[in-house]
Each structure stands twice: as structure tokens, then as C-alpha cells.
Design a protein around this nucleic acid. Structure first.
Lengths: 341, 341
DNA sequence: AATCCTGTTGAAATCGGTTTCAACATGGGA
DNA sequence: TCCCATGTTGAAACCGATTTCAACAGGATT
């Protein structure tokens, strides 16, 4: 078992209080006493319990992050951004996975809160709005990525989904497309719904009619995207381009198109959203909207740190997202094609 | 702030002891008292502090996992396997990222240990062997994925790198390749070195000579793989096939080959290792060795749980890994090509 | 009426640290 | 010689829970 401060005190022939002083570099310890204590610490290979320390001090130095899926490259990039900033400021980040279940997400949050985290950051929340409010009211600084929440204790970072989608669809239209399908995500997820709004904006702006039968749900997954494309292509009238509300679905659509004998981008143009690492690597390389996820994490971390230091208030940030043009939209360009003749 | 057991006790007009009894469903509380306490708990929206509970009970219900990089799909799949099993058994998994730094890995481990985790699992360790021994001796059950450690307190899960690589190279040889290059990972990483041994085994088994100049380091990264391929192809004699010690490097090589005007698999066959999700999606689809990572996580979690329950000893497991044949090796097959004519 | 259970409850110790406050020794100044 | 300031140390309270043990009330038994 691990040794305690008492063991050290006994070995050094002092009281626990003195050991504590040595541990925290407090003044007022005679050099030779300090020496004796330090020797004892080394002998026992002693490290103070962060649990006990945190309990007493009311500050743990831990920030908790809850993610919907720890294998999601997209969300993990945001976590990276958080982490880089937080660890530089001597906070420690622990990550809990909710396995895509709203219930587990809620449990994780509550659990971290009772675990004494100094701040809680929820990435891509699946909670009902009212639950978010409740979490925001638990007393520790609360941060969100990928969801809006107007609450005096909530910092939020979001991407400007609407404008970004508008630009992407505009790009398709500028290629001459007038029949454009939309592959939507899981209903109720804000990001996806904002993207649909941007999509409709673009259509109406350019005088195209919105056709409900050309919106198919792909549930944000590769398989869903493949199925959705199949449905879009099974009607009498087929769109000549599709916008998918995320890259996973876009990639599913890309491969499904191949399966249907369609050549992308000649027979069908595809644009996604997120710019995951895969986007560059699939063939044809996927044109997509880049979300500045590292930066999002960074910005959120910055604000949380300032809040912890008492030098800032919660902030609501909206980040721009820009179109990354590759091959799947019909333009002649890709990160690798530069080397092609 | 969050309320404490004392607040509840005061509100319900009982002692903290009674509240604790209600919380833990202990017998010997009068129904009406219990009722009163439960009302108070609900009113204050009280959840007991896991920190205090853990401190007192000497058992936290937390298992710590330390990973080299939280954006690594490969390692995260192992974590998923762990998690599925652990959460079903009422343990909670917290994940710490070491940002690919051995020093941070060490800090994370020590920190989790003083944080009172019930078990520690280290995924893809970057530590010196002696540090691993030290960690194993800290008293809590210790588990490792991706590293060998003979220690009475260490459970380990590894893949049979040597045999799997042997088979993969054998496959290339069966296609008629006699000049085969090897793209190696970061020096010192066990997995990579075992794969090199398997590679040499295969060469000598089939009477081919091993050429040191045909081994280039790619540091397990996509860029490294690209650079390594460039070096392999810059000599007077060029290999007709390469085996990369992981998929990242194989994918880098794949795209670099395109850049060099080589067609895969006609001009150059490529095989990777890991079977990451990308492997199926790149073009041509990557032939690779599949590591049963979910299963690895599952097996490790099972053993750790049994150890925690006192019903098993640490175990050393070696899992088989099998070749997944797609297109990059020259065979006519891929998960998507089935739909091609 | 005295005794003994039994069921219900609270006071206090405990986990491993930190911090406040008081105690003590030492040395300098009056 | 006495007093006080200073430096060093330890005893004890505290953080928020659990658990042991003792106390107490009420009913049943003798």
C-alpha cells in the first residue's frame, strides 16, 4: 500500500503538520528539519493523496470533460485543444465517455461534479436543454461545445453552421447545380438543424425550391449516409448534388455512389461538414466545411481558465467555419492532386 | 455550491449518520424517517461526494486509463473495449491523455494512483521498463496493453506481432514479390520491433536476403511513412512491395506513391498493420493486419475485474492478428469493390 | 415492578491531508 | 534579571462522507 503523511511524520520524528509544510514549501521550517522530512519522503516514496488534499482545500485542480464518444476524431480534436491549454496552466483534464447515451452523459456530469472537479466541460451534449440548465447551476464553471445555452454560468463555443452551410451550398449552385439533396443528422441535434436552415437559406436566396423528399436522415453515421443517398437516388427525379450535414455521412454517400455506379463528382457532387482527417484521404477527396476544432477547444479553455481565476465572465463564442475545396464538388483540386500531372 | 450530508441532516432534523444510512439503503431506519430524509435529499438536489466516500471507504470505483494520444483511433478502440466491460460492472473509467510524452504518461499514472483509482491500465506505454515495474508495485492492480512486463502484479495483453507480420510478408511473397521494403516505427517501441523480426523471419524463410537500406523509419506517422517511401524509392534498386509497421505509415506511403507516379498495387504493393478505420476507405483500399483491439480491451477488463474481485491472478495474454486482404497488395478484392463490375 | 430485548437514532472516530492557533525555546534589549 | 519579539513546532479542527458503539424508548417477559 501507499504510505501516508503520518508514516512520513513518524519516520522523520516530526508531526504531520510539519510534513505538510515541507510538502507545500511553506516558510518557517528549519533547514535541517526540512532535510530530515525530505529524506523520509524519499525513503517511503511518498506522494500526497490528491483526494485528501482536494477534499480539504476545496480545489482539486481537475477539470472534467464529457464526450459523447471517445472514438470520435471530431470531438477528440476539440478535447486536444482544451487539453493543450489546460495542462499548460497546471490543470489536469480527465475525460469521460458517454457511449452516445444521453443518460450516461448525465451520470458522468453529475459524477464528476461530486468528484470535486473545478470545472465541467461538456462536448457535443445530448441532454435536454433543461438538464443543461440544471448542470450549469451546480456551482462550478460550466462550458459547452456544440450547443447554445443562455445561462449566466455557461460558456459556449459554437460554429456558425448556418453561414458556413450557406456558403457551401452556394458553391454547389455556382457549379451549376440546381437539384440539391440534403443528408441530415439525428433529429434534435442543434448543429444539424442549423445546417439545414443554412441549406434552405441558400436555396431560397438563389430561387431554387426546397423539396422535402430530397432531405433524408443519415443519423450522422457512415452507414446512415449510405442509406440516405440510396433513398435520394431511388426517386424518379434525382438530385445532381448532395450536401451532407457531416463528413461521416458524406463519406458513406461517396462510397454508396460508387456502389450505384455513379461517378463523383461527374454524376454527383458531394460536400460534407467537419473536415475530419478522413476527408482528405478518401477518393475523391471530400470537399467539406472545416470546423476550427482545436481553436474551439483553445478558446473555451482560455475562457474557463480566466473564469477560474476570477478574471472573466462566461462568454458565448461563435466561430467562423470555411469551405475546404477538394475534389468531390467538381473543382479540380485536392491536397494530393497537386503532384498529379 | 453543492450541499453536503450535514445540510440534508439539518433539513430533515436527523443526524448525518441517519442520512448516510438512507443513502446506502442500510436496514434499521424507520420508514417515516427515511421518507423525511429522502424528501430533504430531493429538495436540496443532493448527491454524496464521491471524493469523501472514496476517502473513507478506501475504494473509489474508478479505474484509470492512460493513453499516449486521445486522438489515436487505434488506442481509443482498446479503451472502448475496456469501457464496455467495466461500466457494465459498475466501475467508472476515466481517461488521461499523455500527449505522446513519456514524462506526462508517468505523471498521469502517479497522479491517478494518488487519486485513489482502484486499478490502473496503461495503453501503449512509452515508459522505460523500470518505471513500469515501479508502477506495478504501487499496490493497485496494474494492466498493460501493448507491452510485455513480467511482474506478479501486471496483467498484459499483446498481439502476436511476429507471426502476423510473417504471414503478411508471406502473402506478398506469394504474389511473386522478392524485393520488399520495410517502413519501421519509432525505434524502441516493442510492437514495431517485433514486426521487424517477423519481417526478417519471412525473408529468411523464403531465401530472400535482408537489405538494411530497405528499412526506413517512418515514426508511426503518415508524414513519416511518406518520407520513408520516398527514401526507399530514391535508391538505384527499388523494392516492388513495402510492408509498413502501421497503417498510418502505410497510408502515407500510399499517397506518396501516387505523388511519385507509381500505381498501387501494379507498380508497388503495400501492406499495413492495425486495420484502422481509414484502411478500408483509402484508395486503393489497404491490405493490413487486423488487431483485435476491442477484444483486447475486453479481455484486459475481464481480467482486471476478476482481480479486483479477488477471483483471479494477473494474466499475460497474447492475441492472434490476421491479415485483411483488400486491394493494395494486388489481390482483386475490397469491401467496396464487390459492388464494382 | 424489574429485567431484557429489539428497533431506531446520534455522538464520535476515521480516512489523509491542510491550516489555525497556541506553546515553547532562544536571543536581544532595557 | 526581566520582558518581549522571533522562529520553529505540534495539537486539534476541518473537509464530507461511513461506521462503530453506546444510548434510549417501547413492548414483552418474568
Amino acid at each position: 500500500m501507499s504510505s501516508t503523511i503520518k508514516d512520513v511524520a513518524r519516520l522523520a520524528g516530526v508531526s504531520p503538520a510539519t510534513v505538510s509544510r515541507v510538502l507545500n514549501d511553506s516558510a518557517g521550517v528549519r533547514p535541517e528539519t526540512r532535510e530530515r522530512v525530505e529524506t523520509a519522503i524519499r525513503q517511503l516514496n511518498f506522494t500526497p493523496s490528491v483526494v485528501a488534499k482536494g477534499l480539504r482545500e476545496g480545489r482539486s485542480g481537475i477539470i472534467g470533460a464529457v464526450v459523447p464518444d471517445i472514438t470520435s476524431l471530431f470531438f477528440m480534436d476539440v478535447v486536444k485543444g482544451l487539453e493543450n491549454t489546460l495542462t499548460l496552466n497546471d490543470y489536469r483534464l480527465v475525460v469521460c465517455d458517454s457511449q452516445n447515451q444521453a443518460k450516461k452523459e448525465r451520470e458522468n456530469c453529475r459524477w464528476l461534479l461530486t468528484g470535486g472537479v473545478d470545472a465541467l466541460i461538456l462536448i457535443g451534449p445530448m441532454q435536454e436543454q433543461e438538464n443543461l440548465v440544471e448542470l450549469a447551476e451546480q456551482g462550478v464553471p460550466f462550458g459547452l461545445f456544440g450547443r447554445h445555452l443562455h445561462h449566466p454560468n455557461a460558456s459556449t463555443v459554437n460554429v456558425d453552421n448556418r453561414t458556413a452551410t450557406f456558403r457551401a451550398v452556394e458553391h454547389l449552385i455556382s457549379h451549376g447545380h440546381r437539384e440539391i439533396g440534403f443528408i441530415s443528422g439525428t433529429p434534435g441535434v442543434t448543429d444539424g438543424e442549423e445546417r439545414l436552415v443554412g441549406f434552405r437559406d441558400a436555396l431560397s436566396q438563389y430561387g431554387l425550391t426546397f423539396r422535402p423528399e430530397w432531405v433524408q436522415c443519415g443519423s450522422f453515421s457512415e452507414e446512415g449516409g449510405a442509406r440516405a443517398l440510396e433513398l435520394l437516388m431511388s426517386g424518379a427525379e434525382r438530385p445532381t448534388a448532395v450536401f451532407a450535414a457531416n463528413d461521416e455521412m458524406a463519406i458513406g454517400a461517396l462510397y454508396q455512389a460508387k456502389g450505384l455506379g455513379l461517378e463523383v463528382p461527374k454524376d454527383l457532387a458531394v460536400i460534407g461538414f467537419d473536415n475530419v482527417r478522413l476527408a482528405r484521404l478518401v477518393s475523391p477527396a471530400l470537399t467539406t466545411v472545416n470546423q476550427p476544432r482545436l481553436d474551439a477547444g483553445f478558446r473555451l479553455a482560455q475562457n474557463m481558465l480566466q473564469r477560474l481565476a476570477g478574471s472573466a465572465d462566461p462568454e458565448r463564442m461563435i466561430l467562423p467555419a470555411d469551405l475546404v475545396v477538394r475534389q468531390s464538388c467538381g473543382c479540380r483540386w485536392s491536397s494530393y492532386s497537386a503532384a498529379d500531372k
